[in-house]
Amino acid sequence: MVIAAAVLAGGCASPKTSYVEADSSRLITTVEGINIQDFAQAADAMTASLIDNFINPGLLKSGVPGEPALMAISRIVNSTGQQLDTDMLIKKIRVTLLRTGKVQTSTTVAFGGVEDPLVAELGGAPKRRPDYTLSGKIIEDRTRAGKVRQSSYIFQLALSSLDGIAVWEDERIIVKQGSRPSVGF
């Protein structure tokens, strides 16, 4: 009787909480929303594309010889039905580009206002104009067949020179199918 009760109680207990590596295959995946691993995948694919098609062939130009090129963040439109912070995508790209040693990002010149108001206040007007701006859009498409739901998240980014020319563009589509959330995929 006691054993049966213990077994029953054990079976009904909710799973314990544990830490999971942010880049592991054991993260919760949902069809309804963009998960953190989706942002990481999109950012990874976008930085790889930018390096492959623009930086590695030597097309990136800096306004100050010997210095990394300067990039400003322009409008990143969220066209999904979800409330999300676009920095989930853009910050990863910025950090990775900074670590290439080829690109830096302005914290005082950005669409929608300065990112670091104290630098803008202490440093005065920006001394250097950006060489490039990064703009983009996140789009969502949903469909279903019976119980199976499918969500597609389309990440679009463009790097523009100050002449208004898109010198690099790419699109990454993440498609998820399922009927309920799961851990893993």
């Binding site: 691993q37 990481a40 995948q41 950012a43 990874d44 790889a48 950090v95 290439t100």
Partner: peptide, 24 residues
């Protein structure tokens, strides 16, 4: 890297797939 992730991929029976990666 902040972009480190486990990319989900799928491969059909008998298919040959090329997986690429670029150094950061």
């Amino acid at each position: 890297l902040p972009t480190a992730n486990a990319r989900p991929r799928s491969i059909e029976g008998g298919e040959i797939l090329s997986i690429t990666a670029t150094a950061p």
